[in-house]
Simulated assay, not measured.
Amino acid sequence: MAALFRIGSGIAVPVPYSLSKEANDFIFQCFHVNPRDRPTASQLLENPFVRRPLFSDCAPSGQSSSRMR
């Protein structure tokens, strides 16, 4: 709620730098004070943070990972 209040008041929301570069970029884009500067939902779905796999050791479909055997 604090982030929404700050954005609505025209105050930038601090983004923690302890996150990955992709997460930081995604959040920063969503928190632009000016709504015209924010990406659309379609644009956000193309963001590398959203498109990356949840687990780095996932095998391509049809193949099992060594951890799943």
Results as ranks from 00 to 15, higher is better:
S42F: 13
L44Y: 00
S18C: 13
R52N: 10
L45H: 02
P39S: 02
L54D: 15
A41P: 10
L44A: 02
P53A: 15
T40H: 08
N24T: 15
Y17T: 05
L54E: 14
F28Q: 14
L54I: 06
Q29Y: 05
R52C: 10
L54G: 14
T40G: 01
P35E: 11
A41Q: 05
F31M: 06
E46R: 09
A23D: 09
Q43G: 03
D25Y: 06
L54F: 15
N24Q: 13
K21W: 15
N24V: 02
H32F: 10
V50D: 13
P39W: 00
C30S: 12
E46P: 05
P53E: 11
L19P: 00
S18D: 10
V33W: 01
Q43F: 07
H32K: 13
L54A: 15
V50Q: 13
F28H: 15
L19I: 07
P35T: 00
D37C: 04
L19D: 00
A41T: 10
Q29T: 08
L19T: 01
P16K: 07
Q43V: 00
A23V: 03
L54Y: 15
F49T: 03
S20L: 00
V33P: 02
N34A: 08
L54S: 13
L44I: 01
D25C: 14
E46N: 08
F49V: 08
D25G: 13
P53Y: 10
F31E: 05
V15A: 01
I27Q: 05
Q29C: 07
R36A: 12
R36Q: 07
E46C: 03
F26I: 04
C30M: 12
F26R: 06
F31Y: 11
I27L: 15
D25Q: 12
S42K: 07
D37G: 02
L44Q: 06
L44P: 00
F26G: 06
H32E: 12
P35G: 07
C30G: 09
L44G: 00
R52S: 10
P48R: 13
L44M: 11
V50C: 13
C30E: 02
D25K: 13
E46W: 04
R52I: 08
A41I: 13
R36K: 08
S20V: 02
R38V: 03
D37F: 03
P16V: 01
R51W: 11
E46Y: 05
R52Y: 08
R38S: 01
S42D: 10
K21I: 09
S20H: 01
D25H: 07
F28C: 07
T40D: 13
Y17N: 09
D25E: 15
P16C: 05
F31P: 04
R38F: 00
S42G: 08
P53M: 15
L19G: 01
C30V: 14
F31T: 08
R52G: 14
F28A: 14
L45M: 01
N24L: 12
V15W: 02
V50I: 15
L19N: 02
F49N: 03
E22Y: 15
C30W: 04
N34G: 02
T40L: 06
K21H: 14
A41F: 03
P35I: 00
N47Y: 04
D37L: 03
N47P: 08
E46Q: 10
K21F: 06
H32Y: 11
